[in-house]
């Protein structure tokens, strides 16, 4: 571990990045992941300008057109109020991506400082932080999120709040273990003896060392967060209508199985591909950035 740590600290970031990209491009599954992620991001960015019926995500209702099978006018058919499903899944990419990124970053923003604090401070403070984290880690995430959203009321913001609340502990664990392991490293000892301030040690040594596993975890978590929000949507506790959230769409489409089976297909495929993309990318990044932690 000490060798890797010193190496990563020593190598200039730009060269490391180039090396990483090169390694990434050698793996088929990583490239597939990268491609899927880029595709989703692009869809999210340009979605409103390319969809055939932009009005159909704002609550336009054309009941005469409801539940049409796929056709030239509606490639993926229409839903129960006559909205174009293709339009809604594409705009749905925006919501899912934003929510996935939002949850992950918020969770990291809470978890990482707490973890580093626990790792560096040690003693009673560490004990308190880690016990509190363990409490949340021992909580069944989805059940707790369901309870939270049910209590707060459904809606995309509440779903995000609930998921952030069950998501941050993982980051405390990660940051704490990194901070803890680095604290014992000889070069940190050396820096401390040399009179470097705590903040400097943190900035120069702890953060860069935690970065690789953090990036890997966040990449995976964006995918999982997208899935979690969709799950809440499926249970009926996600986005409010007419917001085109994928999970909520499946939840409604479910009532129209099996006769209108195509309705449920598109949102499911989109969730799958988005989550697959982030997971494959995360996997690939881990192989490069953090090869030793390749566990489960």
């Amino acid at each position: 571990m000490s060798a890797t740590a010193e190496e990563t600290v020593a190598a200039p970031p730009r060269r490391r990045l180039r090396l990483a990209l090169w390694l990434l491009s050698r793996s088929f599954s990583s490239m597939l992941g990268l491609f899927l992620v880029i595709a989703i991001v692009v869809l999210a960015l340009i979605g409103p300008w390319i969809v055939p019926y932009p009005d159909h995500v704002a609550g336009a209702v054309s009941l005469a057109n409801k539940l049409q099978p796929p056709s030239a006018a509606h490639w993926l058919g229409t839903d129960e109020v006559g909205n174009d499903i293709l339009t809604r899944v594409i705009i749905g990419a925006r919501i899912s991506l934003l929510v996935g990124i939002g949850i992950t970053f918020a969770a990291a923003a809470i978890g990482v400082p707490l973890g580093i604090l626990a790792g560096l401070a040690g003693g009673r403070l560490r004990e308190a932080i880690m016990r509190f984290t363990d409490l949340f880690l021992s909580v069944p995430g989805l059940v707790l999120a369901i309870a939270l959203v049910a209590a707060l009321g459904p809606g995309i913001v509440n779903a995000m709040i609930a998921l952030i609340l069950v998501w941050w502990p993982g980051y405390v664990r990660l940051a704490e273990s990194k901070a803890l392991s680095i604290r014992e490293e000889p070069f940190i000892e050396a820096a401390r003896v040399a009179g470097a301030s705590r903040a400097r040690i943190l900035r120069r040594h702890v953060l860069p060392n935690s970065l690789s596993p953090l990036i890997v975890k966040m990449s995976m978590d964006i995918g999982q967060a997208i899935l979690a929000v969709a799950s809440l949507g499926f249970i009926g506790l996600g986005a409010k209508p007419p917001t085109p959230e994928w999970g909520a769409m499946i939840s409604i489409a479910r009532g129209y199985l099996p006769d209108w089976w195509w309705y449920a297909m598109a949102p499911g495929v989109f969730i799958y591909l988005a989550v697959l993309g982030f997971n494959l990318l995360g996997d690939g990044l881990r192989d490069i950035l953090d090869p030793r932690s390749n566990r489960g």
Partner: peptide, 17 residues
């Protein structure tokens, strides 16, 4: 959703909860 659509003509937004 139908109410939301109808009230757009009056420039009244509807928050469906």
């Amino acid at each position: 959703l139908a109410l939301l659509d109808s009230l757009r003509a009056l420039d009244i937004r509807v928050n469906i909860v």
